[in-house]
Amino acid sequence: MSEIAATNHPTHLQHHFSEMAQQNDSAKLGMWIFLLTEILTFGGLFVAYAVYRAWNPDMFLMAHKALDVQMGALNTVVLILSSVTMALGIRAIQLDNPKQSVRFLVITIGFAVMFLVVKYFEYAHKFHVGQLPGKFYTYTGIEGTNPHIFFSIYFMMTGLHALHILIGIGLLSWVIRKTRQNIFSSQYYAPVENVGLFWHLVDMIWIFLFPLFYLIG
């Protein structure tokens, strides 16, 4: 076993691990623990959301009508599709097909950019009419108590999410470059897999943001 390791992939095995499986498992476990911190970070904002929605259910109902369901739904579809292409990109590298993998990852970035473009139009509209967080809120068309808090929470949660999309685009670009250099194969693809995990988590958070902001019944 050791001579196989020595001939085939000595470069990826770091000195303090004894074998690739151990190193790959460690990388994945580390990534998952990082994802837990992401869940709890967003979790704090979900708490703020829950508390203020429970206090002001009518205001939330009124304020959410300022959001465009079509755009939200479009973005949901875009992110789900990007998750599928991400998963397929990992599958391709698992099957030792880096070319196909790059193709899927590029499509994933395409979806991510599309998401941000839609988000840009939504934000631009709200900036224009003054539906802004906190003390910058100047819109007068929404009844109910303190609608500016709704937009504070909306901008913080979607803003933090959009920031993660941006980071995801950066990570994807990095992985694509490495894949093009033929660094990854079915034996070593932990970075691709971990970027995938990150991307799926970003998708997962949007899956909750969408109904909580756009679909208040």
Binding site: T41, G43, G44, P133, G134, F136, H148, I149
Partner: peptide, 23 residues
């Protein structure tokens, strides 16, 4: 599990001070 909540708390505090988000 706990430190991320501190992170978001401090971000909220900073946003409260700079942008007046009102939370």
């Amino acid at each position: 599990l706990a430190t991320p909540v501190l992170a978001i708390t401090l971000i909220l505090l900073i946003l409260e001070r700079t942008l007046g988000i009102g939370i």
